[in-house]
């Protein structure tokens, strides 16, 4: 559908759930003009309901024969949550802290809840942006063909001049990563920071990631770390491949973690804290081989042998994680004073 494809790889073993990416995106794009309730980037806790609430149960995507499926448009009050403020001014005068609208649901509502009972509880963080899919279902659902995929990098964008706010895209996106702006009556989504990309800069979420979990580059660029992780070492997988949209955000799955404990508090040999079956439900059956490959590389390092893959994942130099080609001619990085 596009000549080239930009992609992002996120190493879930390194995400600490600090939400710096969320804030970077929000201050860059969505803290104004009817976008307040949108999170083009969010970090959710898995297992968990996520954002919007239970988005994995809302349908959309393509069936196994390649036909677009129907889906549900979430509600602001029930599924996304209404942004709330606290009575900060009154607190200084001695009032008790309370939210100005009653919080019922929000973008990280079940943060750190996870699954399992102590001492075998577990969770990990899953940062999510638009997947800039190779077969985008939002694009397919638009009755006005207002959504397009850029040829030069595969970024999926909404033509706001054509958008009439019909929200078929929101129903059809299985990741619920396209949002309705009720003030403008248009649908809006993550734009992969294309104005930054055009200047050779990574998206704000990736640039500000303190855990250095995000790699950005073109899938066909053999020198890019994205290419190496996705194609060469094959340790990064799309989220919910069964949705049939061919997502272009790839995840290095979390390693199983420490062993589970039995009733007497002894570790159970060969047990998994994060069940691989659960990871398979997120990343498909290929996750088994990926985990094996990662474990084998870890074993190599334990024996003192070199591992290019682990060196990549450590990300000694942040800038090496981004291979975006040369910036537009004449572009100079702005100097902050």
């Amino acid at each position: 559908m596009s000549t080239r494809q930009l992609a992002m790889v996120m190493d879930l073993n390194k995400c600490i759930g600090c939400q710096t990416c969320t804030v970077a995106c929000k201050t860059q794009w969505t803290n104004r003009n009817g976008r307040e309730g949108m999170y083009w980037n969010n970090v959710e806790t898995k297992p968990g309901a996520g954002f919007p609430k239970k988005w994995e149960e809302l349908g959309g995507g393509f069936d196994d024969r390649g036909n677009l499926k129907e889906g549900v448009v979430p509600s602001r009050y029930g599924d996304y949550g209404v942004p709330w403020d606290y009575n900060s001014d009154e607190i200084l005068k001695g009032a008790e802290v309370h939210a100005q609208t009653e919080p019922r649901v929000g973008p990280n509502w079940d943060e750190d809840v996870g699954a399992g009972d102590f001492p075998n509880s577990h969770f990990f963080y899953l940062p999510r942006i638009c997947n800039h899919c190779s077969n985008p279902s939002c694009l397919a659902a638009c009755p006005r063909q207002a959504i397009f995929k850029r040829d030069q990098d595969g970024i999926v964008l909404v033509d706001l001049n054509r958008c009439e706010g019909n929200r078929q895209c929101i129903a059809a996106c299985p990741y619920k990563k396209i949002y309705f702006n009720p003030k403008l009556s248009k649908s809006e989504k993550c734009i992969f920071c294309f104005p930054r990309i055009e200047q050779g800069l990574p998206p704000a979420c990736a640039d500000q990631c303190v855990g250095r979990i995000r790699f950005v580059g073109y899938l066909d660029d053999e020198n890019s770390q994205v290419h190496k992780l996705v194609k060469k070492y094959q340790v990064a997988l799309g989220l919910h491949p069964e949705y049939g949209t061919q997502p272009n955000v790839y995840y290095v799955p979390p390693l199983p973690g420490p062993r589970r404990f039995d009733k007497t508090g002894k570790p159970i040999e060969g047990s998994e804290r994060i069940p691989t079956a659960y990871l398979e439900s997120l990343f498909g059956p290929a996750v088994h081989d990926v985990l094996k490959r990662l474990s084998a590389e870890l074993d190599k390092r334990k024996k003192g042998q070199p591992s290019e893959l682990l060196d990549l994942l450590i990300a000694y130099k942040h800038q090496d994680m981004f291979q975006l080609g040369k910036p537009r001619p004449g572009f100079k990085l702005p100097v902050l004073k």
């Binding site: 596009s2 080239r4 390649g66 677009l68 190779s134 397919a140 638009c142 066909d220």
Partner: peptide, 18 residues
């Protein structure tokens, strides 16, 4: 919209799109 149905029997492009 012609993108509502893709052909799974066809060759995918280098970016995985049908």
């Amino acid at each position: 919209n012609p993108n509502q149905h893709y052909d799974k029997s066809a060759q995918r492009d280098p970016n995985g799109a049908y």
